[in-house]
């Protein structure tokens, strides 16, 4: 029984750790499939985390917090969209600026809430959580955002492969010029994809500050936005493979904390390097076959589009 609960707790913890990566990764995947590379995921996530926590603390309502987080992520993405789509600024530079800006602004706006303890999302929904039997407690820890993340995989996969709008989005990501010649509204589709990416990154941030951790701290995403970017490459831009990547990373994150339970006594600082090293290993493995990677990537990724009359 105790062993069963341990295994269950590892599965649950893996799913919970995978959720923010999955949410942010899906958003970025859609943006990249439309041909836009947004390196600002980390900054958008942090703004979502700060805004979500602040609004929940002020209103006492978690749903309002989640909505505020999505709004904050979308607003950040809108700045990126204005610069890269409308003003044709360099996507790499703008994305990096968005991340640095987001790290600073989230620290600034989140300052009054730094270190303030808050109940997790699961504990908010199930007030009796602490007194539930261990196995049930584990299952209840799977808060709605975990389910939302997996539902979003279905939705995005279906949207990209089965809908007219999804086809248009993929076409824009392969060649904006051809899509434009066929009468597709290139910039409108890219704008929508980038804003969707922002909303998802914001939600991913709120998952960290409202459900996973749950608290607000400066720079609390600790590189998860960048790991999400790497996962999109690992997934070769396919939603279902993103699930595999996110679960793998969820597990590596958990292994870090479980290592001691398995009698591995390594310094916590060195164990903390695991997710980053794993990201590098995964990138190396997927990138080695350069031809396959090039064929899988959206052909217009990172290329600006100038509308002509």
């Amino acid at each position: 029984m105790a062993e069963g609960v341990l295994i269950l707790s590892i599965v649950v913890a893996t799913l919970r750790a995978a959720t923010p990566l999955l949410l942010a990764g899906l958003g970025e995947l859609v943006a990249e499939r439309s041909g836009v590379l947004n390196l600002g995921v980390e900054g958008m996530m942090l703004m979502g985390a700060a805004a979500g926590f602040a609004v929940r603390a002020l209103s006492g309502n978690a749903v309002l917090g989640l909505m505020a987080a999505m709004l904050a992520g979308t607003a950040m993405a809108a700045v990126f969209a204005l610069l890269t789509l409308r003003l044709l600024a360099n996507q790499v530079a703008t994305g990096l600026a968005l991340t640095i800006f987001g790290i600073g602004l989230s620290a600034l706006t989140g300052l009054p809430w730094a270190g303030v303890p808050a109940p997790g999302l699961a504990a908010t929904i199930w007030p009796g959580l602490a007194h539930a039997p261990p196995a049930l407690q584990q299952v209840l820890l799977l808060d709605p955002l975990v389910w939302v993340a997996f539902a979003c995989v279905f939705a995005v996969d279906w949207f990209l492969r089965r809908t007219r709008a999804g086809l248009a989005l993929r076409a824009v990501g392969e060649s904006a010029e051809v899509a434009h010649a066929l009468g597709t509204k290139v910039l409108r589709i890219r704008l929508a994809a980038v804003l969707f990416g922002g909303a998802m990154a914001g939600l991913a941030g709120a998952d960290l500050s409202l459900a996973y951790t749950p608290m607000w701290a400066e720079n609390m995403t600790a590189g998860r936005g960048w790991i999400a970017l790497a996962l999109v490459v690992f997934a070769t831009w396919k939603p279902w493979r993103l699930v595999a990547g996110a679960l793998l990373f969820g597990f590596v994150t958990i292994a870090q904390f479980q290592a001691e339970a398995f009698g591995l006594s390594l310094s916590p600082d060195l164990l903390a390097t695991l997710p980053y090293l794993a990201t590098i290993v995964v990138l190396v493995l997927i990138s080695r076959d350069s031809t396959r990677l090039r064929l899988a990537a959206p052909a217009a990724l990172g290329k600006p589009f100038r509308p002509t009359d």
Partner: peptide, 19 residues
């Protein structure tokens, strides 16, 4: 943390002006 905010803002503005 004001520093990062100002730094990011400055680069945004230059990228916009560079158009």
């Amino acid at each position: 943390s004001l520093t990062g905010t100002l730094q990011g803002m400055l680069l945004f503005l230059l990228l916009a002006a560079d158009v």
